[in-house]
Nucleic acid binder design. Structure first.
Lengths: 225, 225
DNA sequence: TCAATAGTGTCTGTTAGACATTATGGA
DNA sequence: TCCATAATGTCTAACAGACACTATTGA
């Protein structure tokens, strides 16, 4: 059944690279991990040649874990894109992954957090990828625990709401937010409280989703165009 | 593009192939386009070596257009997967696209519609891809005009509702469905009617989305786990 | 006439958002 | 004390689903 591609793949430059859009909330803003110093013209996203052996998601997970020094809070594949032949590695394809990490994650050496909405100048293709990744986080945060994985193990409900507001790009109603959260059985209170500046201390919660069955969302028509 | 994959693959093993999950509603069931006869052990999905030049989405669009003889009603990239080294083309990566076409689309020579929920025996990886593709259609049909593109230019509201019911896997309430559709300004009635068998004739509609701004969906927590 | 499907009006329980109020700390 | 934030109760408009009903065709 066919010849092994391994020889050809190892002889020539790798066919594809992995690229990472890693997001966190830093200083109250959405931040993305960028590599700095490679070129003078601006930043770049973390990338790595692809090891063609084994499942793609597992390869990416290993790479990101090694890069960050810890497993990301959440990660998914955004998709594959052609490099346009301009990538220095000689790769033809880029497979982009999107990950989120808690706010207290230190950037690895040579990397830094950049504001996701005013990033350093990026090549047009990378800027497009970044925008698509943030849009993907926004669209999936109701189905995946993205916001919860951008927080430490315990957090206040106001912190959680701020994550949602940052990713959705709009203010949310506090009482409504908490009612819906309560009804979803996703968090449970701890007996710890945190006093932050002036006002009343806030209770700390932890992400503890309880299985609920038979939750069917109604049909919605939300096409914009 | 569009030539027989076997020759191109043997001439120079490409780094990646394109694979297509093309869905339509045929005989009241969700169907997927399968290639037949290559092997005795079951069907396979349409695939093609990837032309590494140019944007990936454009290459895929050209290939699918040539394969079907017409542009698909809607298409998006599902993602990239490793072949596990077992693909006869020698490719390492598979980039899967998902497309939908109207019910009256004839399968190209050598292909056939297979029931998406009881397909011919597929290799495990392809079965997984098919399931993921159908799940992707289900999850995105509220944000993209997927159901509308599986219908001819004019259609009855009952036909539209049947598409939604097939993809969502559950029955929908007729009055609610039409109310929500009306509120979304997505269809407009034509002055044509269609008499189908016994009952009262149904009015034909066309997909004609009108821009509406300021439509913000509420925050929802729909994590299953 | 009956059967079958299209299309619509009404009612009701649920929910999202607005508003108001209380609670509890720091300055 | 004043102020800022947390947390919650109440009201209202909108909405989803159930139900019933009318409309219009073929058999």
């Amino acid at each position: 059944m066919g010849d092994r591609p391994a020889t050809a793949a190892r002889a020539r430059p790798g066919p594809a690279i992995l690229e990472l859009v890693c997001c966190a909330v830093v200083d109250g803003r959405l931040a993305v991990l960028t590599e700095r110093g490679r070129t003078a013209r601006g930043g770049t996203l973390p990338w790595s040649p692809l090891d063609p052996a084994g499942p793609l998601d597992a390869s990416a997970a290993r790479w990101v874990r090694g890069l960050l020094g810890r497993a990301p809070g959440w990660m998914t594949q955004l998709g594959a894109f052609s490099t346009g032949g301009r990538h220095p590695s000689g790769a033809v394809l880029t497979v982009v992954y999107v990950a989120v990490v808690p706010s207290d994650t230190e950037p690895p050496a040579g990397f830094a957090w950049s504001p996701a909405f005013e990033p350093p100048p990026l090549p047009p293709r990378r800027q497009w990828v970044l925008d698509a990744a943030v849009a993907g986080l926004r669209d999936r945060m109701d189905l995946a625990p993205i916001a919860f994985r951008m927080l430490p193990a315990t957090f206040t409900l106001s912190e959680l709401q701020r994550i949602y507001e940052l990713l959705l790009g709009r203010r949310l109603h506090k009482a409504s937010f908490r009612r819906a959260l309560q009804a979803a059985f996703l968090v449970e209170p701890t007996d710890a409280w945190r006093s932050e500046g002036r006002g009343r201390p806030a209770q700390l919660y932890r992400y503890a989703p309880r299985k609920r069955r038979g939750v069917r969302r109604p049909v919605r028509f939300e096409l914009l165009a």
